[in-house]
Design a protein around this nucleic acid. Structure first.
Ligand code: SF4
Ligand code: SF4
Lengths: 164, 164
DNA sequence: TGCATTATAGATAACTACTGTCTATAATGG
DNA sequence: CCATTATAGACAGTAGTTATCTATAATGCA
């Protein structure tokens, strides 16, 4: 289990866009050169980000990409979910059997047993695995593109006052 | 990005072993039947768990598997790391370029710049992604096979007193 | 209008990891 | 000696990722 390379590409491209001046389009050529990926492949990723409302894109001369919202409104979780997909990390096998009812939580056994699925609520194994995913997602949600830029010191600090 | 099915198989098999009486071997036939996986495939997973010291295995008549240590000494993280591997979730691409030095953290810029890699220490993108993974791993480390059994109420609660 | 530029979409292929099966081998107990 | 059981290796099918190529549509400019 690993994050796909595409997620890395997306993150790096967005950081570059965030550093570009507001209202200025950045072309795929510049981005792909910077990341060392083909224009063709990267453009697919950018399109996906656009479809999900992270970017705005302009075709034609002087076209390119621009952030659709401010960098502090774009979380790492946004990007990960868009590129990696929104399926859960842990997927129950054995969905149609009744063997897994073994792992019901004690408290929820007889209280409100109406219309809830074995997998989503009752099972403790699933609960642990989903809980682990939630920990990661919460962390990713707390970090934005802007938060990374804020704590970075760039080589040529021309307008970023290195506030040490 | 998803956990492999094998991780699920491993977790379920271990829980079954933990419920079995101490000193009693459980065969691959029983386990595979329970999980609905082929003996052949599951045995590979079990072997891996044995090689990593989670299980003990006995060949021959009346052979089978048994936990090598008590269930509260086997964490979810142990299993995940054994089956999924121990590589980091986020892998830096672009390892040989010097472009990524852009994302250095301000504090660490001039203090102790000796013998540390751009990727592991300096980069804030990597830091966020590794931090996210750590959140998940810490959570998985806090949960053991035993902790799941403790809070479960089994259908036939013959010796588990349902301590509400 | 016509042209160069730029993003988009689809088809497709190479590669990799995951999942699964089959066969042969070794160890154990009776 | 034999039945049982785990182990190991080879192998194939599947799916997802990564990547390339081509064609198309939109835009700005001369
Ligand atoms: S994790 Fe729980 S609900 Fe999911 S397959 Fe296993 S026992 Fe069933
Ligand atoms: S995450 Fe940081 S260190 Fe890794 S490739 Fe990107 S810029 Fe470089």
């Amino acid at each position: 289990m690993q994050f796909s390379k595409s997620t890395g590409y997306a993150l790096h491209a967005l950081i570059h866009l965030a550093r570009a001046e507001r209202g200025q389009n950045v072309g795929i050529k510049e981005l792909s050169g910077l990341l060392g990926v083909s224009e063709s492949y990267l453009s697919k990723i950018m399109s996906k980000l656009r479809q999900d409302g992270i970017l705005k894109a302009v075709t034609g001369v002087n076209g390119g990409y621009e952030l659709a919202r401010s960098a502090d409104q774009i979380t790492f979780l946004d990007i990960v979910e868009i590129i990696e997909g929104r399926q859960q990390l842990y997927d129950c096998f054995n969905m149609d059997e009744e063997r897994h009812q073994l792992f019901f939580e004690a408290e929820s056994a007889g209280t409100e047993a109406e219309g809830f699925s074995v997998h989503s609520k009752g099972c403790l194994v699933k609960k642990v695995m989903d809980g682990a995913e939630k920990q990661m997602n919460d962390y990713l949600r707390r970090h934005t593109i802007q938060s990374v830029l804020d704590s970075a010191s760039f080589d040529c600090g021309h307008e970023e006052t290195n506030k040490k």
